[in-house]
Structures are given as structure tokens and as C-alpha cells.
Amino acid sequence: MKEFAYQRAADIRDALIAGGGGARYLAGGTNLVDLMKEGVEAPTRLIDVRRLPLDGISEAADGALVIGATTTNSDLAAHPEVRRRYPALSQAVLAGASGQLRNMATVGGNLLQRTRCAYFAAQECNKRVPGTGCPAIAGAHHNHAILGWTRSCVATHASDMAVALTAFDAIVRYETLDGAGEIPLSEFYPPVGDTPHVETALPPGALITAVVLPGAAASPRSRYRKVRERASYAFATVSIAAAFTEGSVRIALGGVASRPWRCRTAEAFLLDSPGSFRAAAEAELSAAEPLPGNGYKVTLARNLIETVLKELQP
């Protein structure tokens, strides 16, 4: 690990002023410190934002649930309103990592976690240094993307939480020195294109302050189901967040793309043909482009959409 300066931010403005250049915000550190040990991240300065008053979950006047960015994964998953109104989010968070890591990790940090592609951690690649190639495409890509990838990068996004947030149309709030902003989660992770190193739509130096769950998306009839190569404490092979709300079905997949994959095609299909879950899944996955070693994910994603929606339907 390279040497770095450390400071605790006194308030948000203090953090934003210190946050430019080679600095990184530190909250739970579960991914950042890990990557610093590997040399993937080498900040010159860490701005500790963990103790900023950005934790806690509150209900807005319009019924939305506002989750502070430094709320830990554990507190998010255990919160009564999350469990009552957005159970798939609670389940998604509980399906991630371990009890210890959930006690450390924060909502803001979770959104910013980097891919778990083994090549990314071990060597230069397009995601780390543009122009250095994607070794995974010709390599060991058993657990890589089947949707939305390009020749520049086939890595998947690792977050479980973000999959559920995507299904619930969550909105990311942030602050910069130029003011506050919002980005819908559906636009938070840009498509891979030929810029896989551009991982979020956040402006430079921005600090995530909250994630907002719209009241209209609340769905007690929602579920997160994660399939992985071990019963616990493993990243998803494929996962699904699904929710039935008034007159609609919301579906997002994890483990299949560079970002949580909102299944708009399947959702639209089900508006026309309610209950045709398998056909909807197949319509969604007709866009899949598996590599030689990960075609099973297409079958798995199809089966998950079908079985979870069947179990969940009113």
C-alpha cells in the first residue's frame, strides 16, 4: 500500500474541499482498503466521511424513504420501514458479504464498489488503464457478463443492494462544491461502451449524501433471490430483485452485466401478457450474448425470473 495522508471531514463542505485530486472518501473501507492493499487504488489522501451526520433513515413528506449515505448495510437491512415496504432491499443487503462486512460497509460506498473481476484486481485492464485490453474475454470468464458488455470489458457489477435499488427506481443524491444533484439509479452506472473505466455518472469530487426510495415503488410483495457457488459469503452468480406493485412488475438482475440490469423488456412484456413469466424472461434474455464459458447464466437468469415471479405473484 502506498503512503497517504488521512483526515476526518468536519462537515460535508470540509469533505468536498479536501476531496479533489488524488483523494478518496473513506467510509466503511471494505472495498477501498482492500483495493489499496492490491495497489488498484492508490489515493494520496483519505477523507474519512464515516462520522459525518449522513447516517440514518427517514421518511419524506411524499412517502419516500431517505437513506443516509453512511448508513451501514446492517442498519439498512434491519430498518423496520425497509423491511416492511421494500423487503427485497433488506434481503439483497443481507445476501451480501458477511455480518462483519455489513456492519462496516455503507450505502454510499456500496454503490461505488468496484467489480470483483479477478483480472481487474490482479493486472492492468481497460477498466484500470484504458487501452490495456480485457483479458477476461479470452480468459476465465465463467462468472462474467452476458448482457450489455462490449469488447472493451465483460466485468459484472458486484453489489446486491444496487440490484434491489434499481428495481425500486431509487435516486442517488450527492453534493459537490457547485451544489447538490440527483441521479436516478438507472442512469447512475453508464453503459460500458468503450469507456469501462468510467463507472458512475457522479461528477468529479462528488460525495453521495443519500439514496431515496420513492414511495410509489414500495412493495411488500418483493423478493431478492441470489444464486452463488456457496450457500453464503460469495458474490452472486446471478441474482434477481423482483417486486409486484400496483399494475406493474419490477425486475432487476445482478451478476449479468456491468451494472444492475433492469429488465424493461420483460416488464413491458408482462404488462401485455400478465403471468407469461417464462416468455417474458426469454424476451429479456434474447439480447444476451454469452461467451463460450458463461452461457449457463442465460438459462439461470431465465429460470430465476420465471420461478421467482411465479412464487411472488399475487
Binding site: R116, Y119, P135, A138, G139, A140, H142, E229, A234
Partner: peptide, 18 residues
């Protein structure tokens, strides 16, 4: 798991080797 091109192990940690 080995990389078929480089011959190197790609899952040499407890997150990758379960």
C-alpha cells in the same frame, strides 16, 4: 481456475477459491 492464455491462477484468494 487458470487463465487459458497466461497460465496463471485467477482465483488465488478466499473470495475466488471457495
Amino acid at each position: 481456475v487458470r487463465d487459458p492464455v497466461s497460465g496463471r491462477h485467477v482465483n488465488a484468494d478466499f473470495a475466488g477459491y471457495h
